Amino acid sequence: MQKQLMHNRSMRAAEIFMSNAILFHHPGPINDGLQSGRPVRVKNLLQAFSEIGFEVDVIAGNVSQRRKAAKKVKDKIGHGRQYKFMYAESSTMPTALTTASHFPIAPCMDPEIFFYLKRKNIPIGLFYRDIYWRFEEYSQKVSFWKRVFAISFFRYDLQWYQKTLKVMYLPSLQMGRFLPNPAKFNLSALPPAVGENSIGAPAETVTEPLNILYVGGLSSHYRLHVLFRVISRLSGVKLTVCTRSQEWSQLEHEYEEWLTPNIEIVHLSGEQLPELYEQHDVCSLFLEPNLYRSFAAPVKLYEYIGACRPIIASQDTNAGDFVEENNVGWSISYDDHSLEELLKYLISSPSEIIKQGRNCKPVAKKNTWRNRAENVARYLGDLDQ
């Protein structure tokens, strides 16, 4: 009996030391029921790490939940558990201000976790989501004292990231130039991706009229005025804009002069979107270029590609560069004439739309969440060993 117990303990110890375990950190809930970029990304990457064979221990949730999870991790490490690496997803807020009250009740807790893992020689990679706080628009939207308070914690995050990370992932490398002291970080791109099971089929025909779809916001980052204006005066083309009802109510007055019968506004999300994509020929990211768009990697870009719908995008944007480099649509100047000429060409050349749609599928297959997880694992955890 004693020999059997010793054998069982040895087997458990072997399992611990040989386990293919990693850590996943996020200062918030993994799935809060929202369909926006952050929760979708966090949930999909966590699932992708599991799918490629890792056993994932999660440090996420509110402060209390993260503290309990971190204690369990430390206990496991103390008993011999080995972790190949930790992958972390930041919030759009400073880590210490992700509490319900946005007050820093435990500002040292997450840095302490990172420093502890670094001392244990566990490499850490973190996706830094946004650099919005470095732009003028942030100062226009946030009051002075709130801004000063938040920025001090944004900078605090960067200080302990600099000392603990093996790599900082960004939506695109172009975002790196807006970081304070970017040379102090090892930067790599880890843009959004496509769900393997959600990759659609390219359309074999084009509808009449030509159906164009935009899915997304209407705030100052997503100005659609040129798109509305041009399509409102064209025949042979229809535009569907899928956006949140509250956002449309707030901004409808900016577009009402162009609300012709060939422009429709809908409010759909989640499981309703695949059918919406199937009903349209082309998707739009024809947005006004600005500094932010020069590095932003829209989630919808990859969703459009996954639906195998070619994309109209603006030049001088990161999305436009991707569309042009991967031959999955058309990247044009952001002006009325360029858009009108392109739409007239597409109306008369449906075979071009079909060809570009077919190009989307192989690009989608190279840009799945599984691909992203494998890239992280190769760098941080020697996946191929």
Score class of each variant (00 low, 15 high):
M1A: 04
N8T: 12
S10G: 15
A14D: 04
A14Y: 15
M18N: 11
N20K: 15
F24T: 07
G33E: 14
S36Q: 09
V42I: 13
N44L: 10
N44M: 10
L46C: 04
G53Y: 14
F54R: 01
D57C: 01
V58I: 09
S64A: 14
Q65C: 06
A70F: 08
K71R: 12
S91H: 10
H102S: 07
P111E: 13
F115K: 07
F127I: 06
F127H: 10
R134L: 12
E137F: 13
F154K: 02
D157R: 13
Q162H: 15
Y169C: 08
Y169Q: 05
L173M: 12
Q174L: 06
F185Q: 00
F185K: 00
G195P: 00
G200Q: 02
E208N: 06
Y214R: 01
V215H: 03
H221C: 01
H221E: 00
L224T: 09
S232A: 14
K238S: 07
L239A: 13
L239D: 11
T240L: 13
C242N: 15
C242R: 01
C242P: 02
E252R: 15
H253G: 01
E264G: 02
V266P: 00
G270M: 03
G270Y: 13
P274D: 12
L276T: 15
Y277G: 12
Y277K: 01
H280R: 13
D281H: 03
C283G: 04
L285I: 08
L285Y: 13
N290Y: 00
R293F: 06
R293M: 10
F295A: 11
V299Y: 14
Y304P: 02
A307F: 11
I311H: 05
D316G: 03
V323G: 01
W330K: 12
S333F: 06
L339R: 01
E340K: 03
E340D: 00
L343R: 00
P350Q: 09
V363A: 06
K365G: 04
W369N: 05
N371H: 13
R372L: 04
R372E: 09
L383A: 07
